[in-house]
Nucleic acid binder design. Structure first.
Length: 420
RNA sequence: GGAGAGGUGCGAGAGUGGUUGAAUCGGGUAGUCUCGAAAACUACUAUAGUAGCAAUGCUAUCGAGGGUUCGAAUCCCUCCCUCUCCUCCA
């Protein structure tokens, strides 16, 4: 959420930003409502001030035994007017809030302006894009080696769900443990294991609601959502808190399964593990001071890259254009791994600085010193990494001519085997 | 799921429907004292909205939302959360 005062003072800039992010929020309506709101507030607060003063007088009169009937009668009428104005005010504020919650975050000045992914900018690339003669894709490999089973996934749950079996399950678990261990041991993140279901307040806090309700699994009886990413519970871990300035930056690394309905995406990258309804991911989340957040974003990307390098992948880093960014982000880098079988790039991580957008929604602040004004923190998060997609890239890249898979060296201690 | 207890400021903890934004104690900050520290004493110690260049004023906030009332932390209703006991359970 943006600051209403900021919007009021920079309507044209905000309007331009909405266009660049392909958003059609009605800012003129918002400004009209904002003016109405302030008029109502002035009116109702004047009346309340008067009521408070007269109530005082009534109190004094009653104590001294004087008659206060006329004032009580007057205040009864004033009370009715106040009630009506409060009602109007509430309606207007609800409308304002509804618009505010749907206005996208301002893109940072360094973000390329563009309509879509076409305008994303490749920042750097590591490794070479190889082509292979004897390639099998991860579906064939998974089936032939008996480590991935989508047929039974479809039977037991539905399309878009799969089983990891035997060495496949072990490899998946190795990836999760490897990412958790390196991030916590080497890179200063605190491990955190969040709940996989959250309430709607949390989803509003991180920006998935109100816009993306249909993309998530929702359990009506309990009014809970399955998390689409661990970003939601981990960021909301500090919701409504005043953080200790000395503790910043706060960095968490958390594993969770991620649940996505992927409604409307059928037919696009749906084969096997490329796009599933449930996948595993280690998420990195940071709470930082405003002055450092862009440095922290670069560090976050570095952290993720270090894993891709250790795994020996060919990858590239993309700076997303305004049109391809998510609604809440100020600046986002996507990391993509080269798939020699698909002959294309697979997105395995997305690292975003949200500035104060989430912190304002979730009310996460800190005080520099005990006497200074509270400030919103900046929040960042990035996948570090989505293991299911990594699994696809890994199987395809490390397959041998005989159809077996070499396990990358960094994972062997976690697997207990070298070859699948 | 059943029965009960409770939710007040940074913490503990008062609070007869009427100067209660809220006693008291503790914590924190600053000052006095001291060579320095401790102790003692003194002062300050919330958030947000709104008007204003500002000083400052006004409004709201005692789990949340409604209601009663001229006036609600205090009375009524609904919901949420926490704790205890029973039940169930990995």
């Amino acid at each position: 959420m943006l600051d209403l005062k900021f919007i009021r003072e920079n309507v044209d800039v905000v309007r331009e930003n909405c266009l660049r992010k392909n958003d059609s929020s009605d800012l003129d309506l918002l400004m009209t409502l904002d003016a109405t709101r302030r008029t109502l507030i002035q009116g109702v607060e004047d009346l309340k001030a008067r009521r408070n003063a007269v109530s005082q007088e009534i109190s004094l009169k009653k104590r001294s035994g004087d008659d206060a009937t006329s004032q009580i009668t007057e205040m009864r009428e004033v009370g009715d007017v106040i009630k009506n104005l409060d009602e109007d005010l509430r309606t207007v504020e609800e409308q304002i809030d509804d618009i505010m919650m749907r206005i996208p975050n301002m893109a940072h000045a360094s973000v390329p302006v563009g309509k879509s992914a076409e305008e994303n900018v490749e920042v750097r690339r590591e490794g070479i894009c190889i082509e292979r003669e004897w390639r099998k894709d991860h579906l064939e490999l998974g089936r032939d080696l008996g480590i991935l089973d989508f047929e039974r996934g479809a039977k037991v749950t539905g399309t878009g769900f799969g089983f990891y079996v035997g060495k496949g399950a072990r490899l998946e678990r190795a990836l999760i443990n490897y990412f958790l261990d390196t991030n916590t041991n080497d890179r200063g993140y605190t491990e955190i294991l969040p709940p996989f279901m959250v309430n709607s307040t949390s989803l509003r806090g991180t920006g998935q609601l109100p816009k993306n309700h249909d993309d998530m699994y929702y359990m009506e009886r309990d009014e809970l959502y399955m998390i689409p990413t661990a970003e939601v519970p981990i960021t909301n871990f500090h919701r409504d808190e005043m953080l200790d300035a000395a503790a910043l930056p706060i960095k968490y690394a958390g594993y969770s399964a991620c649940f996505r309905r992927e409604s409307g995406s059928y037919g696009k990258d749906t084969r096997g593990f490329l796009r599933v309804h449930e996948f595993n991911k280690v998420e990195l989340v940071k709470f930082v001071r405003a002055e450092t957040s862009y440095d922290e974003l670069e560090l976050l990307v570095n952290d993720v890259e270090s894993h891709l390098r250790a795994l020996g992948f060919t990858y590239r880093v993309l700076l997303l254009s305004t049109g391809d960014m998510t609604f809440g982000g100020s600046k986002t880098y996507d990391l993509e791994v080269w798939s020699p079988c698909e002959q294309k790039w697979l997105e395995v991580s997305s690292c975003t600085n949200f500035e104060s957008f989430q912190a304002r929604r979730a009310n996460i602040r800190f005080k520099d010193t005990p006497s200074s004004k509270p400030e919103f923190v900046h929040t960042l998060n990035g996948s570090g990494l989505a293991t299911s997609r990594i699994m696809v890239a890994l199987l395809e890249q490390y397959q041998r001519p005989d159809g077996h898979i070499d396990v990358p060296a960094c994972l062997r201690p976690y697997c207990g085997f070298d070859v699948i």
